[in-house]
């Protein structure tokens, strides 16, 4: 992983909440606090990107290990959450590339999903809560990787559209437009899945 690249493209320090600041050097107890604050978010992102609990655990483990090893290179220009997400995204992309290299996959059809007739403005109603996770996973798996990532990042209320744009390497306007299409695609696919 290009660790330098992880830490150079984020927002100005002035936009960073002070509570998110990371000291130059963390003691084990302080790193434990960082882990506690962000672990569930990192794990959930990895879980839904990879679609496998065991792989998500491995991914989260690697993410925090890398974060620990490279904390001294963290330049205080990003929120910790954003930084950890960037490592997670890179790790998951790398893992998926390797996996796809070894397996033949059929590509999803996001355009068909976007234009599918569905009442996109109506609420999503779920009856079987216990199967919600599986339905969400199936739905996300059917979307393009870009839509999947955008929706998962947008679901984190701590991330602004600007930060999502940073993480995905595009403009805020592009994020807005794609998120709109991603939501429609998700809803159309979700109705098929449930």
């Amino acid at each position: 992983m290009d660790v330098e690249n992880l830490m150079t493209k984020d927002e100005p320090a002035s936009a960073r909440p002070l509570a998110e600041a990371v000291p130059v050097r963390l003691e084990p107890a302080e790193f434990a606090d960082l882990y506690s604050a962000h672990c569930s978010f990192v794990y959930y992102l990895a879980l839904r990107l990879l679609g496998d609990a065991a792989q998500a655990e491995d991914a989260a483990h690697e993410v925090f290990l890398k974060a620990y090893r490279h904390l001294d290179q963290f330049r205080f220009k990003a929120k910790v959450r954003t930084w950890l997400y960037r490592i997670t995204i890179n790790h998951c992309r790398s893992w998926l590339r390797k996996w796809e290299h070894q397996h033949v996959l059929t590509a999803p059809e996001p355009i068909a999903l976007e234009t599918a007739a569905s009442p996109a403005d109506s609420p999503l109603r779920v009856l079987e809560i216990k199967e919600l996770g599986q339905c969400i996973q199936k739905t996300l798996d059917a979307l393009s990787p870009e839509y999947r990532l955008l929706l998962l990042l947008a679901a984190d209320e701590q991330l602004s559209y600007a930060e999502i744009a940073e993480l995905t390497g595009q403009s805020v306007d592009a994020v807005r437009g794609k998120l709109h299409r991603a939501r429609r695609a998700f809803i159309a696919q979700f109705r098929r899945t449930t």
């Binding site: 609420p123 109603r125 919600l132 929706l151």
Partner: peptide, 13 residues
């Protein structure tokens, strides 16, 4: 009922 996809994902998370 979820008003938005993001709400559903937050609930799932």
């Amino acid at each position: 009922e979820f008003g938005t996809v993001e709400e559903m994902l937050r609930y799932d998370a």
